[in-house]
Amino acid sequence: MTEMLLRASNIAIEIAGLELVSNVDLEVDRGHSLGIVGETGSGKSLTCRAFAGLLSPIGGRISSGSLWVGRQDATSPDTHAKAALYGRVVSLVPQNSLMALNPLMRIGTHLTETIKALDADSVVQLKARAIDLLQRVGLPDPERILRQYPHQLSGGMRQRVMIALAIAGRPELLIADEPTTALDVSVQKDILELLRRLTHEENMALILISHDLGVVAAATQSVAVMYAGMVVERGPTDTVLRQPRHPYTQALLKARPTIGHTGRLMGIPGAPASPDTWPSGCRFAPRCPHADNRCDAKVPTLETIGGGHVGACHRLHESLVLDLSKKDLLSS
């Protein structure tokens, strides 16, 4: 039977009094992999920061809802307990990880300081463990890499080092925030392959964040789609990608091939809503081709579609079947 590793119920995230993420409901079981997709600014990173316990450094907090990581309540202010969680139970490969290595520090030092901080058992054989970690993430000639500085490595290698650092504490849940963004296409594949292999070998759960549905499709069992700080659709990856029920997911799928550098979905007209001007009703309504009066009046809640597939749309049951050939579907 599966064991729950992380459960977020209805959490909202606030920074400086502004609610940036609302009503997020997510679960990850041991060994499971979850993808989170959405446009830039939809709250993916904030959500995983919340999961990794990294809200407070940016002045954020979980303002409502509950978050359980392992068997612990992660919203409690017990920092000691948290310290035991993060890195060991949950570990994050941060977004923008190509700049997440100290330029003045050798790769070896990065690894050893992390091992010292997270893995008390390995302190006696620091170097062996560091080499082992590098091997696990598929880096050749680890001895040499230990002596090198970050700028001497390629982007893909640095991403692998970041993953090695993230798994140093033998976490049960690995969160990778846009791990393939800014990498060459061929390297992207390798990294995804690595993540898949690692989670498999180490029986780790994975949360993979991306604005690219394709990335998520290739590597996760279930997926959550976020829009404007809310989860709008969630379900088994296959189901959600084949039968998207939320107009936003449908738009995402349609727009996929034209993703630009910024992660903005070029195919969806209109600008994403911004946190200080959330619409009072459905946040996607202003851009949604199917919006009606209900949508402007009331925020839709997640409703079950079946088979673990849920969606938040007033017209969820009206079977607004996606017709990818019908061009005007997404025009407003």
Partner: peptide, 29 residues
């Protein structure tokens, strides 16, 4: 404010060490 400090913090590197080994050397340059 650099990502590497944030990342080190996320990895559980103790605050003292972050200040001494990550922030300080870069501040000394």
């Amino acid at each position: 404010g650099q990502p590497f400090v944030e990342a080190a913090r996320a990895r559980g590197v103790p605050r003292r060490r972050i200040v001494a080994c990550h922030v300080l050397p870069n501040a000394l340059l």
